[in-house]
């Protein structure tokens, strides 16, 4: 690609500034929001948009300014995009589990307190693995 150097610098700087702003806003949300379910929002956006912006800026810098093609950043961003929702889901499950056991108390957010599970369902935290699934050890 032949992009003039000032334009390349503008692109790289813009991506870095956007990424840094999102990371800062995400952490500010982690401090500021009142309940854990709301606090989960901030850092997940910081992961995808903040780090995604910075990693794209890095790709653009090495490609446009220095003329080297690197793919490490794309590996990092793909890995983070895959794992960030999983860790957020697990943290939310831990939170629900502890709320249900009474180990955590929390003021109800705008959405109110989470509904208790019905008699025949669970939040899949302490439930035994279902028959026929890979986690089913007793059914072997």
């Amino acid at each position: 690609m032949s992009v003039p150097l000032p334009l390349a610098e503008v692109i790289v700087s813009l991506l870095i500034v956007i990424g840094g702003s999102f990371a800062l806003i995400g952490s500010w949300g982690l401090v500021r929001l009142p309940s854990l379910m709301e606090r989960l929002h901030g850092p997940t956006k910081a992961t995808t948009l903040g780090l995604g912006g910075m990693l794209l800026g890095s790709v653009a810098y090495f490609q446009l300014v220095r003329g080297e093609w690197t793919t490490h950043e794309l590996l990092v961003s793909v890995f983070l995009f895959v794992t960030a929702p999983i860790s957020a889901n697990l943290i939310a499950k831990v939170h629900l589990h502890r709320l249900r056991l009474g180990e955590a108390s929390e003021a109800a957010g705008p959405a109110g307190r989470p509904a208790p599970p019905t008699a025949d369902t669970d939040w899949a935290t302490h439930e035994a693995p279902h028959l026929g699934t890979p986690g089913d050890m007793a059914g072997d």
Partner: peptide
């Protein structure tokens, strides 16, 4: 105030440190 908040804070710290390494 809870242990879940601390896990979330540690997870976010790792993300921010990755950002610092990239920069």
């Amino acid at each position: 105030p809870g242990v879940t908040d601390r896990i979330l804070a540690l997870d976010t710290m790792v993300i921010n440190i990755i950002g610092i390494i990239v920069l």
